[in-house]
Design a protein around this nucleic acid. Structure first.
Length: 475
RNA sequence: GGGGGCGUAGCUCAGUAGGCAGAGCAACGGGUUUUUAAUCCGUAGGUCGACCGUUCGAACCGGUCCGCCCUCACCA
């Protein structure tokens, strides 16, 4: 590396000595490469274009050379011919390296192999690069470098760039869909005095001037529902949540979540909304059926809807209400049963035996009430909650419920949670209860794990491949 | 945190019954005025992740540590 760096540095110095600007201020009035390639078919031979990009290959032939330059979306060949450009320009060309960023102006022609090529009349060095790029043919494989130096990954691996362009399109079309349904996008605090809205271990930080501890949010839920109280009837937020827990192929400490709340709606409406959002996004991408990690997934609606208890029975081969047998089965699978609420023991069994079968898309509906501290009691069965989760490719993609808006019941549920230390609740959010005391309209609420949805839609097996800068240990 | 795998040149990878550390691309010098990952001739490039140990001798064997990947646990 030192040698390479020294060599490039000495070229930089030579260019500076020639009076060449090595880090230009701007470059304007040029066309994207793709535009040039598109228009080239009907362009006259010799039509003059100007473009800019990074040099990705140099093929030298004595007093001539072919270079490839690449911008965000395309690559074009440039032909440098010594007798077609000025001597000064040729001198500059001789000091260029792969990875330098240049602007080029010249007439188009086709080589004898038919490739559209710019015959350079003018070259302008825009940025001198002092370090080499990963090798062109094999690209960059080392995941350690790929994640830590994502810029190199983006340059070397075009499919990586496409994944993140896809990510941007997906999020844009989610916003489009919700905006059309008259939702407004809001931003609520990332730093919470009391963490809430999910049972997850939070990150703690400290504000010096206020001299108070703050928690990075584990969910925006309680703030968004305060907005429903305030009369904003349909709100959503797409932003980061932070959970101080394990890292895996499906978990990053900071991850992107959509939460949407709709007044006067219940969880059935939210199921329809979920189906609507995701099938709209899929259609925007031109996706109907995919194979993801060897699972065939068909996005055609309507999606399956099955009650939690039915699925439990179907895959555990036990009735949920047969407590002794359920506990015995949990024990036989070495799941923890001591000092654990029955609903949680059974749910462990559910996660172990049911969820791995859920290729989906499938809505699991009507969860046992005690698993859902923020959901409304089921109108037909007091032991259940009006809640669903959406599973696709064995992953939990969405979670939603008819929102509990009875402040007295909510307070009692919070107090119950506080008693169960295992839930990890730190303290009771009285301000939220106070908001509910003023009256929150009946509402459906929905959370969608955006990173996981993107994993499926862009066919990436690891959450790290859909997050530009995943959390890694300090090196 | 437990278990498994991996770490060799800028990049992609070889290399060990323990005996002078290799290739391709990239780089450097020279030749080549229509090439397409890889033109020809030549040159240079390494703390083999780090440290400790075993050994006459360690990239290779043992230990500790660091980092990454997978997996289990916690969780979401």
């Amino acid at each position: 590396m030192n040698k390479e760096y020294e060599s490039r540095l000495s070229k930089l110095n030579k260019l500076n000595a020639l009076g060449v600007t090595t880090f230009a201020y701007e470059y304007r009035e040029f066309s994207p490469i793709q535009t040039i390639l598109y228009s080239a078919s009907d362009a006259q031979q010799g039509a003059v274009y100007q473009t800019a990009g990074r040099i990705t290959a140099l093929r030298l032939h004595g007093k001539a050379a072919f270079i490839d330059i690449k911008d965000q979306n395309a690559k074009i060949q440039v032909y440098i011919k010594k007798d077609k450009i000025s001597e000064e320009q040729y001198q500059v060309f001789e000091l260029l390296d792969i990875a330098d960023i240049i602007g080029v102006k010249g007439g188009l022609f086709r080589t004898k192999t038919g490739e559209i090529t710019i015959l350079a009349e003018k070259l302008k060095l825009l940025t001198k690069s002092l370090l080499p790029l990963p090798e062109k043919w094999h690209g960059l494989q080392d995941v350690n470098i790929r994640y830590r130096s994502r810029y190199l990954d983006l340059i070397a691996n075009p499919e990586v760039k496409n994944t993140f362009i896809g990510r941007s399109h997906i999020i844009k079309s989610i916003r489009e869909y919700l905006d059309k349904q008259n939702f407004i996008e809001v931003e609520t605090p990332m730093m919470h005095p009391i963490p809430g809205g999910a049972t997850a271990r939070p990150f703690i930080t400290h504000h010096n001037t206020l001299d108070m501890d703050l928690y990075l949010r584990v969910a925006p839920e309680l703030y968004l529902k305060r907005l429903l109280v305030g009369g904003l009837e349909r709100v959503y937020e797409i932003n980061r949540n932070f959970r101080n827990e394990g890292i895996s192929i499906q978990h990053n400490p900071e991850f992107t979540m959509l939460e949407a709340y709709q007044s006067y709606a219940d969880y059935t409406d939210m199921m329809n909304l979920t189906e609507g959002i995701i099938s709209y996004v899929a259609s925007c991408l031109g996706i109907e059926k995919i194979t993801y990690e060897n699972q065939k997934i068909d996005f055609a609606t309507p999606w399956q809807r099955k009650p939690y208890l039915n699925l439990f029975e179907e895959y555990c081969k036990l009735k949920w209400s047969d407590r002794k047998e359920v506990i015995a089965k949990a024990k036989s699978l070495e799941l923890p049963t001591d000092n654990r609420q029955y609903e949680h023991i059974a749910n462990d069994l559910f996660e172990k035996l049911v969820e791995p079968n859920l290729t989906g898309p499938i809505f699991i509906t009507d969860y046992p009430l005690s698993l859902c501290p923020l959901a409304k009691r089921h109108r037909k069965d007091p032991d259940l909650a009006e809640r669903f989760e959406l599973f696709i490719a064995r992953m939990e993609i969405a979670n939603a419920f008819s929102e509990l808006n009875n402040p007295l019941e909510q307070k009692a549920r919070f107090e119950e949670q506080l008693k169960n230390k295992a839930d990890g609740m730190i303290s009771l959010d009285d301000d939220y209860i106070n908001a509910l005391l003023h009256g929150m309209p009946p509402a459906g609420g929905l959370g969608i794990g955006i990173d996981r949805l993107i994993m499926i839609l862009t066919n990436q097996p690891s959450i790290r491949d859909v997050i530009l800068f995943p959390t890694l240990r300090n090196q």
